[in-house]
Amino acid sequence: MLAAMVDMMINILLFLLQLYGNSAITIQPNPDLELARSAAREQVRWAVSVVVSRNAVRIADNDVGAFPAQNRAPNEQEYQRLVDVLRVQRSAAQARARDGVAPKEVVVQADKRLSWDVLGPVMRASSDAGFENVRFVVAVTGGDAD
């Protein structure tokens, strides 16, 4: 009797391991982070991660600012902190890279309801820190974007 159960559990385990292995970055369901929908199909690749939820900006698990809570642009100090943390993360990623080349891309998970007042400066800060490209994580739709 137990053998059948073990078979079933091992199948579930393999399915979950495969699911786990496919994701380059972790996207946790969060009511403050509702991703925009898109018909894009490009798989998310690993890069320095910036999460801009409705409450805060997190860069590689560091809380960097709470200005999204007021849906406003960062002030000068907050902006400088964004640039500094991004520079540190870029250096760390460069040190980890096998070829020693600094990364040029950052992956941004942003809430779709946030205004460009918040996200524009985050993009500008990424550029100031040396990241030329920004890749936005989106939720995949069946066809046309909603």
Binding site: V44, V107, F131, R135, V137, A139
Partner: peptide, 16 residues
């Protein structure tokens, strides 16, 4: 199960 993500995600690449 706790760490799995069941939604489908993709990325939109852009240049600043």
């Amino acid at each position: 199960l706790v760490s799995a993500q069941f939604g489908a995600f993709a990325e939109l690449e852009s240049q600043v």
